[in-house]
Nucleic acid binder design. Sequence first.
DNA 1: CCTTGTGTACTATGAGTATTAGTACAGTAC
DNA 2: GTACTGTACTAATACTCATAGTACACAAGG
Lengths: 136, 136
Amino acid sequence: MARTQALLIQIATGDPRPISKQIVDGVRMKIATGELAVGAQLPSVRGLAQQLTINPNTVAKAYAELTGEGWLEARQGLGLYVATPRQRLSNAERDRRLDDAVQSFVHEVAALDYPPDRALTRLERALRVLAPKKTA
Amino acid sequence: MARTQALLIQIATGDPRPISKQIVDGVRMKIATGELAVGAQLPSVRGLAQQLTINPNTVAKAYAELTGEGWLEARQGLGLYVATPRQRLSNAERDRRLDDAVQSFVHEVAALDYPPDRALTRLERALRVLAPKKTA
DNA sequence: CCTTGTGTACTATGAGTATTAGTACAGTAC
DNA sequence: GTACTGTACTAATACTCATAGTACACAAGG
């Protein structure tokens, strides 16, 4: 009966990412993997802030970003819900941003002098969590 | 006879990365791909700064990082040279940092709602530039 | 109507980082 | 000496991130 489905994100103080980005990434991953179903309600801004002992503004900022990207939908006075999927970006923009991510990853592999084939294998394994859409 | 081999890096003002990191990434990639051979001399701190119209301190910071990571070697009063390869990090640390990079990439693929198999293909292609060590 | 809980929108402040600017010093080569 | 190298400081500016506090509009339940 828990409206907001028990709990959600974990924030790591050692994580170099900003807190708001950790929330954005965390929620987005839970949606992408199906852990958060379409229509599910999210913890309230103030509730999640209290739970993580961070500032409500930080949560609001993360939620605003997710809403802007189309992952969440706000119902005024009620709360935030996982939105129905839709095309969010142009194909050109998606390709450009993926290319940035690819470059960034290659840079890191080069920096670590890591064997490229092993890096690819590990990445392939990690990407599998994004697949289960087709199992439904 | 150009001691510092014509030229090097390009800085993009639109790039979200700090300038110093752009230099670090750029030089490291040129070493990893073999474009900069072991023993090659790099542009001087002041020279590269003038060429890129940035502050010498920024170049020095980037060079210091590359030296600390073992990519470059400084000879006082002479200049900076590409160092002979050596093991720089512990395997545990390398694995940990690669895992961070993998996670970051997966997050971005999820954020873009990009087909994972296509993302993997593009990455595989981009990683090939790191291979040519074995062709020598 | 009133109270509570929701998202949202501001301003202000402190901490940290990136960059620029300027100066200075030690080593090398001619 | 002069002119290059790398390196090491301090100071000031600009920007981001997070916190703090306040306020407003909407929804639900008395």
